[in-house]
Design a protein around this nucleic acid. Structure first.
Length: 271
DNA sequence: AAAAGCCCCTGGATGC
DNA sequence: TGCATCCAGGGGCTTT
């Protein structure tokens, strides 16, 4: 579920409130993708400094060490002073003096991992190969084009890989390519400078817009206060197979690319 | 180095 | 109603 917009909306919902809070207890449920890598009791007494985001990871800085969190496919975070008793899919609780941060993740592709610092081997393994932040200063159209020219894989899969630019998942890859008028199957290396530029702008636009709409709620995404997102209501192609294109009325097409669904308009995205 | 497949796991929708 | 199949916002790991 969570791509950059959902992760960022989640972060914005609790970062300010948890900053400065002392950790009172840590509860772990079923195993997530990786082990926590620290004894939960060792975190008690530490203080949360701030919450950052890198790609789809959340980085929770403590006065010593940090927690790396990932929501996987089905994860969501809640933060509140009076959460109900933990349910079967609540697999991590960070209980602080200001409230509890709780990870709910039915499929358990998500993760919570402790690292002493960002240079630790574990943190480097997870964060080291990430591309640039699409909403930051480092996302440059010319550099983006230069990177794309080195890749022969289909542009959709190159966007998804996250090693050139981070945060673009399955929804927003399809949406950005629609906005840019680019067929998802074209080799990244064949995009001209102007077309790469359009894609660069489309990625920024679609992600920023999705953040403003509170993300996309297709099944179960909700933010740290349980609120749904609304971007899905203005999706042009994602999950709209067979429905008319909002621009030209051609039925939206569905296909598989590397085990993931891709949606596109065969008319607006001719090549 | 890059690309393609394979998994991890649970639950909802669909079809017979 | 029951059961099988397919699909789902990700991404690390292994193999070509």
């Amino acid at each position: 579920m969570p791509e950059l917009p959902e992760v960022e909306v989640t972060r914005l919902g609790f970062a300010d409130r948890i900053a400065g809070a002392r950790i009172e207890a840590v509860r772990v449920g079923k195993p997530l993708r990786w082990a926590l890598a620290v004894e939960p009791s060792e975190l008690v007494g530490r203080t949360v400094l701030e919450v950052r985001r890198r790609g789809k990871y959340l980085l929770i800085d403590l006065d010593r060490g940090l927690l790396l969190m990932h929501l996987g496919m089905s994860g969501s975070l809640r933060f509140g002073a009076e959460l109900p008793a933990a349910g079967v899919h609540d697999h991590f609780d960070l209980v602080t003096a200001r409230g509890t941060l709780r990870l709910n993740d039915p499929r358990r592709f998500g993760a919570v991992v402790y690292a002493e610092d960002e240079a630790s081997p574990l943190a480097v393994k997870l964060l080291g190969k990430l591309g640039v932040e699409p909403l930051g200063e480092g996302f440059d159209a010319a550099a983006f084009h230069a990177e794309l020219r080195r890749r022969k894989a289909p542009i959709k899969q190159v966007l998804l890989a996250g090693d050139i630019v981070v945060g673009v998942g399955n929804i927003y890859a399809s949406e950005a390519l629609f906005l840019a008028g680019i067929r998802p199957t074209v080799s990244a290396s064949r995009l001209s400078r102007p077309r790469a530029s359009r894609l660069h702008a489309a990625v920024k636009e679609v992600l920023a817009r999705a953040v403003a709409r509170g993300g996309s709620t297709l099944r179960d995404f909700s933010d740290s206060e349980g609120r749904s997102g609304y971007f899905q209501l203005e999706a042009n192609v994602y999950d709209r197979a067979g429905e008319p294109c909002r621009v030209c009325l051609t039925p939206i097409r569905w296909m598989k690319q590397g085990q993931r669904s891709t949606y596109f308009c065969p008319t607006c995205q001719k090549y």
